[in-house]
Amino acid sequence: MSNWQWFHRLGSPRWFYYKTEGWVPWLAAVSGILLVLGTVWGLAFAPPDYQQGNSYRIIYLHVPAAFLALIGYYVMAVAGAVGMIWRMKMAFVVMKSAAPIGAALTFLSLVTGAIWGKPTWGTWWEWDARITSMLILLFLYLGIMALQAAFQSRDAADKASALLALIGTVNIPIIYKSVDWWHTLHQPATLKLTSAPTIHSSMLYPLLTMILAFYIFYALVLILYTRAEILRREGRTQWVIDLVKEEAKKP
């Protein structure tokens, strides 16, 4: 029983709200420090790439953003599945919060990829397999957000978008494999886009720092979005009314 207690508690919006209150400053501090550290390290102290020169420094943003964009989709889908299976209110709140964050990170990975492409391949947009897959991932995110927003009933919005997220989860590997296959079929011989063979440790460590920074940043932002959404949904409950009265006393 006690092993499952945390799970039941996690299902309570109030418990989540107060529990995470203390985490926010710590997460903000750690992710802020790591982001600054990784950025300075990557921009100024990591050696330039012998082929790409300094433009490769975009990798310190592009790879972590793409990483979290993909993981964010699974966070969203798993939260949706938990909500569907155990009828857990909080899981749906997390699912809804994860969608815009994931979409923003997907957008970032596309934009940084495009800007990186210009000095490297001489073009802003290349129908590379990974870029195309990321673009489709963005469409999936946007579809889920649009479906969530379209329903009047919150319950139906949560369940429908969770189901769509699950359908997307089944489809992502298929889409990824198909796009990969399509790309090898059409890859022009002059462009060799499969980069990143072995990465030297002097470049790897700042990258790992940035990936860790993005992970913690993702957790922070997910918690912030979830807390705001909790307040919206629980607006008429006694604990939120107490909380609001408490806030009113503050200057």
């Binding site: 975009i58 934009v111 800007i115 000095p119």
Partner: peptide
């Protein structure tokens, strides 16, 4: 020469 691209990304 790559400055504008890198700084734009950041």
């Amino acid at each position: 020469g790559h400055g504008p691209f890198v700084w734009a990304c950041y």
